[in-house]
């Protein structure tokens, strides 16, 4: 198995605060890796460093063995890395379908070609398939801002998959989603993982969700990895229990 994503000794400080202190791990093709940890353990900062949203203080990120440190989020996205956000991030004034087309259009053809080409950049059919896949069919032409919270979460996830990414980083996909929607989200994510062999990295607070979804879990506390392994093993690890209870 080759590593799709290699994180090497990433560290990030804000002023005197060391949010992430030398984290390294690999993610393999087709894997669903979970990253958990108490509040303030550096999960989101780590994500933002991997994704070019923040510049890490030191360390290196490699995609398919290629160093991509210092690339901007849009460049990383066009290399096949996609993400969702912890807080809702859809385009409220665009319809569901337009949101999805937008999520794919920068991967299709040349920029000038898109100006003179078709309005949907040739992505209409793909967007419709994605809408069906996430069971948003009845909402395709609604403005995204009018959707319920859970529906927007689904749309957010659907957008991350629109360009057929190799690697998807999901930042608390289950946060604020009700139980029915949660089951549906988990099942859809696993279906995509099976179908496309896309690799996932998931940050999550909801233990049930992450244990059921992920094949391997990394536990962060105070900016360092304190445990790593299969869900069942991590759950029993005394260091993990201590990190959560001690917090």
């Amino acid at each position: 198995m080759t590593a799709v994503l290699e994180v090497r000794d990433i560290a990030k400080s804000f002023g005197g605060v060391h949010a992430v202190q030398g984290v390294s791990f690999d993610v393999h093709e087709g894997e669903i890796l979970g990253i958990i940890g108490p509040n303030g353990s550096g999960k989101s900062t780590l994500f933002n460093c991997i994704l070019g949203q923040l510049a890490p203080t030191r360390g290196e990120v490699r995609i398919d063995g290629r160093n991509v440190s210092g690339k901007r989020p849009s460049e990383l996205n066009r290399l096949g890395i996609s993400r969702t956000f912890q807080l809702l991030q859809v385009f409220p004034q665009l319809t569901v379908r337009e949101n999805l087309i937008l999520a794919g259009q920068e991967h299709k053809g040349s920029r000038l070609g898109r100006l003179f080409g078709a309005r949907d950049a040739g992505l209409g059919a793909a967007a419709d398939r994605m809408i069906d896949f996430f069971r948003l069919g009845h909402l395709a032409h609604e403005n995204a801002g009018g959707l319920s919270y859970g529906q927007q979460k689904l749309l957010d996830a659907a957008m991350a998959f629109m360009a057929g990414p190799r690697l998807v980083l999901l930042d608390e996909p289950a946060g604020g989603v009700n139980l029915t929607m949660l089951a549906s989200l988990k099942e859809r994510l696993q279906a995509i993982n099976r179908e496309t062999r896309a690799t996932f990295v998931v940050i999550e607070h909801n233990m049930e969700f992450v244990m059921a979804l992920c094949s391997r879990i990394i536990v962060l506390a105070e900016g360092r990895i304190i445990a790593e392994g299969e869900p069942a093993a991590v759950r029993r690890d005394p260091k993990v229990i201590e990190a959560y209870l001690g917090h």
Binding site: R72, S82, L94, E98, L102, E106
Partner: peptide, 21 residues
Amino acid sequence: SPWGRAFTALRENPIRAESLG
């Protein structure tokens, strides 16, 4: 055109737009 969609996206949420390429 898709350009217009991208313009709207950068009005509504530039950080999300950037993450979508």
